[in-house]
């Protein structure tokens, strides 16, 4: 059975499987990728939907539903936020820069 765990994200490129709404990107400090950041997906009402830990390459990935999403990253080095609109099935990219 697939659990609800939030494993470390892999750095594998995200492929469009054709049936998922994927929100993905990297956590950055300046131009440098930040691994080990806690990245959460919030819905349009600001409600928590999921949380993952960014890979060493800074990558994170969520399987969402169509709509407007907010991605928030939390790390010892700082916090960051980005908005993304997923208008349908496919890969929707956004990077989150810590400050």
């Amino acid at each position: 059975m697939e659990g609800c765990g939030a494993p470390q994200q892999s750095a594998e490129p995200v492929r469009d499987s054709g049936d998922q709404v994927v929100v993905t990107g990297r956590v950055l400090a300046g131009d440098e990728p930040v691994g080990g950041a806690y990245v959460r997906l919030l819905d349009s009402g600001g409600e928590f939907t999921a949380e993952v830990v960014s890979a060493g390459s800074g990558d994170f990935r969520f399987y969402a539903a169509p709509g407007a999403w907010r991605v928030r990253a939390l790390h010892r080095a700082g916090t960051g936020e980005a908005l993304v609109t997923a208008d349908g099935v496919g890969v929707h990219r956004t990077d989150v820069v810590l400050s």
Binding site: Q20, E47, A50, F62, Y63, A65
Partner: peptide, 18 residues
């Protein structure tokens, strides 16, 4: 669960394939 799961829009938390 999250509001989207409660409302039937998602079947699992959003870090898992739906």
């Amino acid at each position: 669960r999250s509001p989207d799961e409660f409302a039937g829009r998602l079947l699992a938390p959003a870090h898992l394939p739906q």
